[in-house]
Structures are given as C-alpha cells and as structure tokens.
Write a protein that binds this DNA or RNA. Structure first.
Lengths: 199, 199
DNA sequence: CTCGTTGGCCAACATCTGTTGACCAACATG
DNA sequence: CATGTTGGTCAACAGATGTTGGCCAACGAG
C-alpha cells in the first residue's frame, strides 16, 4: 500500500541519504521492541530512546506508528527451493531446518508473531507472508492445486506452533528441545502434510 | 497468591453474595474483550461498559487489571483420559477432537493465547496449563518419564499452532479447513508425538 | 425503626500515549 | 558569503488509561 518500501533491509541505495544511519537505528530499535513487547507496549518513546533520537523523528520518517511497524517487519523468508526431484523427499527436513535458522537469528519473526496475535495489521501481514511465500512452496511439491492451500495451512500450523511455544511463550519443555530433536520430530510431519495423499 | 479465589467458574457458593450477578457479568465481558483485543487494548472502561457497570466496580471486585485477568482465564481443559489400553491407540484422534470442541465454544482459550503472546503473566498462565494439564496426558501414554516433557511440548506445538493460525490469526486457508479434515491430518501427528519411539 | 454493611455511581487524579509544530544547527550549492 | 535543504531537538496538545476516594441507596439483623 505504502510507497516508502524502498528502504528495506537491502541497502540498495540510489540516493544515500545522510539520515540513513538514524533510519536504520530506528528500525533496529523498533524490531527489538516489537519483538519483546508487542505492538501496544512498544511505545514510540521507548523506541526513540533506544535509537538515541527524539520521538518526533520517528513520525517524520515513518508517518505514524503503523507505518513504522510496516517498515520494521518487512521480511523475506528466503525459503529454499524444494521442487527438484532429489530434494522433494527431503522437503520436510530442509524446511524445518531453514525455519529454525530463520527464527533463531531474526527477531523480526518474533515481532511479527507477537504483534499478529493482538493486532489486525499484524495478522494481515502474516496472511500476506503465508500467501506469497509459504503457499508457493506447497505448490512446488503438491501436484493437485486444489489441495495446496490446505497443505500450506497445515505446514504453517506446525511451524508457527513451534515458534509460538518456543520463542514467544517460551514454554520450558519447548525451549529445552534440542535443535536436532526438533528436526527429527517435525520433519516427517511437514513431509506428510506436503506430500502424503489426502486422508 | 490471592486469597479471593473462591469465586471461580464453579458456582459452589458458601456465601452467595448479592453481587454475584455483577461479578459474573464482569468476568464474561472481560473474557470477551481479552479474547478479541488482547491484554493492553482490553481496557477496564470498555469491559465495564459491556457489563453495564462503573469501571470502579472492577477494581473493587478484582483489585486491579491483573487480578481481573487472572480471574477471567481460570480454566480447566477437562482433558479426556486416554490411559486405557483400548483408547491409547486412538489418543491422537480423541485429543484433537476434544481440542477442537474446546476452542470452538470457549473464548477463554483465545483470550489466553492472545494475551500470552504479549504479556508475561499470560505466558506464565499457559506454562501452568501445559504443566498441570497437558503433561499428565503425555504421561498416561508414554512409559519413559524422561521423554514426557518433550512429547507434551511437541503436542502443544501442533495443537496451539492450529489454534493460532485458525482462531487467532485467522489465516484464511486455516479457517477454511473442515473439522474432519483437521482431525484426519492432525490425529496421526499427535499420535506419533505421543507414542512413536523417539527418533 | 435503627444502623452497620453491601452494591453502586460519580468525579477526579496522575500518568502515559501518539502526534504536531515551532525552532535551531549543519550542510551543500549558487 | 548567502541561501535553501536536511537532520534534529523541545515543548506542548488532546485524549485515553489504571486507579482512588467520596458519596448515596438498598438491604438485613438487632
């Protein structure tokens, strides 16, 4: 909707502004706060203080809080291609491993999930990601187009459920799981959701 | 912590107060608001208005907002017993069906999940439920006590993940799934998490 | 009837929220 | 040097929020 998307994580600069450092600091602080506190409690004042600037700068650069959020959670999951015949039987494992890596060094996803749970805009953003990035993956491995949305939804339910219990709610038994354990348990589930014949 | 827990969902009344109706109205309104808006945006004023009383009454009966939340989300999942030898092979299906019923006519769970995502107290409440109600179920079907927490966590990840995508984020493909579809896909997953030999 | 207790409303408080506009300093360009 | 543009701060606003205390009406036991 908003045309000011050009300042994404990629520093592809056509006109490198002098304020880019500040803009970046604001975005970084915003991601951290949104991830830690959710939408409502991540106040503009707190974000500005983290970025060592005045709250009004946030408004100047991102119009309002919603605009800041939109800019802060723009993300590309960089999902691997699993369409190759050699990779298809391993799709479950590949995807689970990719997701674990994604969540563990990217606070944006935690922010997105936390905000999506209570904020309409956040929920819609997640809808977009599912539709634009997760659905195509399901499409790669599932022949019947009619089943693709359901299979993508199932995959999302398991992957987001793990992220929820482990990185957001931080339920101790979920945090205690070892990385390899998770892969070993979840990979077959994802594989089945994607490729098993509909029950 | 607080001694005023005697007014729970159970109407076991030792001293039926004249204000019980109002108390109930407040709790009902609180559950609805917490479920719809999350902790921060469910304001005491809005809840009071829904219950047709003055905001100050909420404080009088529940001390503060945190106390109101604690009272509003006290819940017993009434998880079925799956320890019987005849039921054990069906544990996955039984549990998934029970959970679907639970979520569909109980807004408390939606409230709890929404709040747990952004609020520390909410997250801890979910921890308690996992520990006190979900873990025992895993214990019923898994012989090795050392594996119980991991298996319970895996089950929670899938069940909460479904709830998240379907009832909180309301991702269209997840909402579109038919009840029987969900059972057919998820039951084997839960069954495997609970009873399959550790990979 | 009397009077303590309970249920309820009203008005206000201090604080925090997003947001705005006026103002100043540094810079680049003519 | 003069001047317009950009980066930034300060002070304030209007509204909402959790919370408090005072006040009044209805009730129930003596």
């Amino acid at each position: 909707m908003n045309g000011s998307d050009s300042t994404s994580t990629v520093s592809g600069s056509s006109t490198p502004r002098r304020s880019d450092a500040t803009r970046g600091a604001i975005l970084a602080a915003a991601r951290e706060r949104f991830a830690a506190d959710g939408y409502e409690r991540a106040t503009i004042r707190a974000i500005a203080k983290d970025a060592n600037i005045d709250p009004s700068m946030v408004m100047r650069y991102y119009r309002n809080k919603e605009g800041l959020f939109a800019a802060a959670v723009a993300i590309d999951l960089r999902l691997p291609d699993v369409s190759g015949a050699d990779r298809r039987p391993d799709a479950g494992r590949i995807l689970v491993e990719h997701f674990l890596g994604l969540w563990e060094d990217n606070e944006v996803l935690t922010a997105l999930l936390r905000v999506g749970a209570t904020n309409q805009a956040g929920a819609e953003r997640m809808q977009g990601i599912l539709r634009d990035q997760l659905l195509p993956v399901a499409q790669q491995v599932c022949p019947d187009p009619e089943q693709v949305p359901a299979r993508a939804a199932l995959m999302a339910s398991q992957l987001l459920g793990l992220a929820l219990t482990r990185y957001v709610l931080r339920l101790p038994p979920a945090v205690g799981l070892a990385r390899e354990e998770i892969v070993a348990w979840l990979a077959p589930t994802i594989q089945r959701y994607l490729t098993a014949p509909a029950p």
